[in-house]
Design a protein around this nucleic acid. Structure first.
Length: 428
RNA sequence: GGAGGGUUGGCCGAGUGGUUGAAGGCGGCGGUCUUGAAAACCGUUGAACGUAACCCGUUCCAUAGGUUCGAAUCCUAUACCCUCCGCCA
């Protein structure tokens, strides 16, 4: 969330920035409430001071054996006044917090203005799409043809938007996960984390999924557990309510987890195949950094994700999301899009975002520059490194051969018993 | 699932109703001493808000309520941790 003090002191600036997101977000009403609250707080504190003084006096007089009936009544009266003020203060504070939680992050000035994804701006492109001398199949045709993907049976188990990979496909997913995590930990200095896949509401609120986007999440009935839609949630929340040391920054974490998304409102989009699933595997990168380091680290995290695609030799491009496509908590986001031959276009395979102190403020993650310094909020970042299912799609399609087999990318071969081709199998 | 025990500052740990934001120790920081260091000694040492800062004030002893003129201390609920029993990958 945004800093109420910052909003108080830079009201017009905040309003102008949010306008780029196409909204007003009730800033005027918010500042009005804020003013009211401050007045009440002051009043309440003044009353409390009086009461503390009186209570102390009672203690002293009682010790001296004096009668304190009258002065006790006075204290009680003060108590009633305080209670009234507090109730009102709390009521306003709650509305302020609710309003703040519903206000998105302010877009970075370098973010292009736009209505939606059509206004995203391409930053760079890498690799050349293969020029097939045959009509390339899509990954579903390839996978089912080789008998390594089975959507029909997955539907029996869980319905649509679920998949079942068999034999070499299952092995390749596992290989991809290991390859990605190994690369990030050994070459880019990330620490591997294996987090819980279920988290509580507080954690979901910390990273911004709640309260606004509950319909995108799966909740475990009769509990306060939610299935994580991305390991961004557990990883970023690891340090909630902590004060870190400057020397510890930047903190770079990497994890592999399944991700669960309800995909409400995406009916009719990518209905077949692995592109959009209720459950998918993802390797995630998360960083906690000092504010002045934020923009540089966004470039870095994006490069780390790109590096995986380069090593897999998959053509991709990087785009900057426009204000219309930018996620709620992010100030700036790069999407990495991989070439999907069957669709003849680039599709998102990674999303790398800088959140400034927006998430850190919700989670209360701070750091100190030195022992005596005041704590400051860290900046948080995350990026997919990469979405595993979509990477599998890209490999199947970009590495397909005319005879229906798929060549295995060189970097994965050592992870797959040194085989180099996926052939059709008759397993199951 | 059953039965107990616990949760106090960066850490350890005292504190069962009245200037207790909290003894003592460790650690940290500053200083004295020293050629330098260690030791010793002295001082200092959390966070949020009001406020940019000082002073000052308010709040914070797991969390949320309650009792009381006054709560770290009493009561209730919840969360988490530990031990034992049962069950279990």
């Amino acid at each position: 969330m945004l800093d109420i003090r910052y909003i108080r002191e830079n009201t017009d600036k905040v309003k102008a920035s949010l306008l780029r997101r196409g909204g007003d977000y009730g800033i005027d009403k918010l500042t009005e409430l804020d003013k009211k609250r401050l007045g009440l707080v002051k009043k309440g504190e003044d009353l409390k001071r009086q009461k503390n003084e009186v209570s102390q006096l009672i203690g002293v007089r009682k010790k001296a054996g004096e009668d304190t009936t009258e002065i006790q009544g006075e204290s009680r009266k003060l108590g009633e006044k305080i209670e009234k003020t507090e109730i009102e203060t709390k009521r306003i504070a709650v509305s302020i917090r609710e309003a703040l939680l519903a206000i998105p992050n302010v877009p970075h000035e370098s973010v292009p203005f736009g209505e939606g994804d059509s206004d995203n701006v391409e930053v760079r492109k890498w690799g050349e799409p293969v020029d097939f001398d045959f009509l390339p199949k899509n990954h579903v045709e390839i996978g089912e043809g080789l008998n390594i993907l089975d959507f029909a049976r997955a539907a029996k188990l869980a319905g649509s938007r679920f998949s079942l990979s068999k034999g070499t496909a299952a092995a390749m997913e596992r290989a991809l996960i290991n390859f990605m995590v190994d690369t990030h930990t050994s070459e880019a200095g990330y620490v591997e984390i294996a987090p819980p896949y279920l988290v509580n509401s507080e954690a979901m609120t910390g990273t911004g999924q709640l309260p606004k986007f509950a319909e995108d999440l799966y909740k475990i009935e009769n509990t306060d557990y939610w299935l994580i839609p991305t390991s961004e949630v557990p990883l970023t929340n690891i340090f909630s309510n902590e004060i870190l040391l400057f020397e510890d920054l930047p903190i770079s974490m990497c994890s592999f987890t399944p991700c669960f998304r309800a995909e409400a409102g995406s009916y009719g989009r990518d209905t077949t195949g692995l592109i959009r699933q209720h459950q998918f595997n993802k390797v995630e990168l998360v960083k906690l950094v000092a504010p002045e380091d934020g923009e540089k680290q966004l470039e870095k995290i994006t490069e780390n994700a790109e590096d995986i695609l380069k090593k897999l030799n998959l053509p991709y491009r990087v785009v900057t999301l426009s204000t219309g496509d930018l996620g709620f908590s992010a100030t700036k986001t790069y999407d990495i899009e991989v070439w999907v031959p069957s669709q003849g276009k680039y599709r998102e395979i990674s999303s790398c975002s800088l959140f400034t102190d927006y998430q850190a403020r919700r989670m209360n993650i701070r750091f100190k520059r030195d022992k005596k310094a005041k704590p400051e909020y860290v900046y948080t970042l995350n990026g997919s490194g990469l979405a595993v299912g979509r990477t599998l799609v890209a490999i199947l399609e970009n590495y397909q051969n005319k005879n229906g087999t798929v060549t295995i990318p060189e970097v994965l071969q050592s992870y797959m018993g040194n085989i180099n081709t996926i052939e059709k199998t008759n397993i199951l």
